[in-house]
Structures are given as structure tokens and as C-alpha cells.
């Protein structure tokens, strides 16, 4: 594992709001092509960590290197180049409400000078269909979509430029189980076929089982432990134990085991 390329490297990160310290001495490595799931209780700073790595929030201390560039000391050009190489999907989509879904997806493409409008339109339609939205969704405004459809549209926009890293904040929260499973399959499929690195914040144990290569647990203001789902089962920490040994975790684990068994048949 050590020979894999590290795309995100967080060292000694400290985040605080007033005297409320959210992260202190947080270290995290994310490798190319993997799907890493970030879990932790509500308010442990998962969204804040995502925002910090994506450069939306300046930490009080520490270092964040993404794709080999220091995100906070880079000059504006380097930062802009870096931003084109990742996509962010926010917790509730964060679509531009005055644009249709298709126009939302076209926004990042406008930065590419010589892309013909028809091509941008066709590519936007492709992205919309890739994330599993019906074709007529492209002409709708975000306010005319359901919560789950907004999430998909947010993902379509995050994927508009085929980034190398996507940050997803609770992509399956609020989706119906079938929709969530589709979304899991979608993320897994995209990650495999496009070599995408996925930074996934989630509470959804099914998603963790179905898609994540590795899990990082946020607690006590840092990344407490990282490892595969199997590794998590043997961690001796009260929160981790109750999270991964609770009834929901068992059910998800059984479901995942049954799924693998079926595939092997």
C-alpha cells in the first residue's frame, strides 16, 4: 500500500471556531483511485474537514497537500489549475437556483475556451444521464426537483470536467434505499472506470460496505483510525465499537456478505 500515490495528504490539521476546537493534530492520507469513507458522529467535523481539503476554509494550523500542491500556499494560478482537477458535491446539492440543471452542469465547462456550445450541451446531457436522472431533468430548475434528484444533479456538476478527485458530502442521505443503492453502484462504477479518487462523507453503513475501500473514523478531534471495514470490527474504542457493532451495522454487514456470496455463485 505504501507504494501507492498519495493524492491527499493532511498533516497536523487544526480547525477551530472561536474557542471551539473541531480538529487538532489531524493526519490523513488518501491514495489514488480509492474510495475513502469518512465516518464520525454528528458535529465531529466531517464537513469541516471536507471543506478544508477542498480549500473552502482556512485551517488554524497544519498542512494540506492535494495532488502534490500545497492548497493554502499555492499561487492563484496553481490553485485554479488544482480546482479544475477536483469536484465537490455539497450536502444538499448547492445548485445555482437561477439556472436549469443542464446549465448548472455546463458552468464548469465554460472555463474551457474552445468547447462548442452544442458539445457542452451534449456532454451535460451525458453527465445528467450518467448520474441516473431522467432526460427531461436537464430543463428543470433545482427548485422543481426532489431532494434526491438535486443530489444527483450536484454530482453531475461535480463530475462535469471528469475530475481526479470528487468530494461527496453525505451523497445518499435522504435517498430511498433503492436510489441509495443505485448511487452506491454509480460511485463505485465511476471510480473503477474513470480511476476516480472519492472522498466520501457518509453516515450510511450500507454505502460504507458497498463502496468504500477504506474507512477513516473521526473522533476526539482527529482521525482515530483508518482501515478496511473488516479492520474496523476489531478496533477497541467505545464509539467505533458501538458504530460498527450496532444492529444497523450487523444488518448491513450481513447484507453485504450475502451480496458477495451471491456474486461468487
Amino acid at each position: 500500500m505504501a507504494d501507492r500515490e498519495t493524492v491527499i495528504e493532511v498533516r497536523g490539521l487544526r480547525n477551530q471556531f472561536g474557542d471551539h476546537v473541531v480538529h487538532d493534530g489531524l493526519d490523513l492520507d488518501v491514495y489514488r483511485g480509492e474510495i475513502i469513507g469518512i465516518v464520525g458522529g454528528s458535529g465531529t467535523g466531517k464537513s469541516v474537514l471536507l471543506r478544508t481539503i477542498a480549500g473552502l476554509q482556512t485551517p488554524a494550523a497544519g498542512q494540506v497537500r492535494v495532488l502534490g500542491t500545497d492548497a493554502f500556499t499555492a499561487d492563484p494560478d496553481a490553485r485554479a489549475a488544482l480546482e479544475a482537477r477536483w469536484g465537490v458535491m455539497f450536502q444538499d446539492g448547492a445548485l445555482f437556483s437561477s439556472l436549469t440543471v443542464r446549465e448548472n452542469v455546463e458552468v464548469p465547462m465554460r472555463a474551457i475556451g474552445d468547447l462548442a456550445p452544442e458539445t457542452a450541451r451534449a456532454l451535460a446531457d451525458l453527465k445528467i444521464s450518467m448520474v441516473g436522472l431522467p432526460p427531461n431533468a436537464g430543463d428543470k430548475y433545482p427548485s422543481e426537483l426532489s431532494g434526491g434528484m438535486r443530489k444527483r444533479a450536484g454530482l453531475a456538476r461535480a463530475l462535469a470536467l471528469d475530475p481526479e478527485i470528487v468530494f461527496l458530502d453525505e451523497p445518499t442521505a435522504g435517498l430511498d434505499p433503492i436510489g441509495a443503492a443505485d448511487f452506491d453502484a454509480l460511485i463505485r462504477g465511476l471510480s473503477r472506470s474513470l480511476g476516480l479518487t472519492v472522498f466520501l462523507v457518509t453516515h450510511d453503513l450500507d454505502t460504507l460496505h458497498a463502496v468504500c475501500d477504506r474507512v477513516a473514523v473521526l473522533a476526539e478531534r482527529k482521525v482515530l483510525v483508518t482501515g478496511t471495514m473488516q479492520d474496523m470490527l476489531s478496533v477497541d474504542h467505545p464509539w467505533v465499537r458501538s458504530y460498527f457493532h450496532g444492529p444497523r451495522a450487523r444488518a448491513a454487514l450481513d447484507g453485504a456478505a450475502a451480496g458477495t456470496a451471491k456474486e461468487e455463485d
Binding site: 446531457d125 451525458l126 445528467i128 444521464s129 450518467m130 432526460p135 430543463d139 462504477g189 472506470s193 474513470l194
Partner: peptide, 19 residues
């Protein structure tokens, strides 16, 4: 990997929805 990308895209290609 390329085959996988092409397959993903082919699967997602919206039907001829000329507007």
C-alpha cells in the same frame, strides 16, 4: 480501463432527444 469508460458512457448515452 478505456473499455470501461466507453462502456459506461455508451450505457448512459441519452437517447436521441433533439430539442
Amino acid at each position: 480501463e478505456m473499455d470501461a469508460v466507453i462502456e459506461t458512457v455508451a450505457g448512459a448515452l441519452p437517447g436521441a432527444t433533439e430539442t
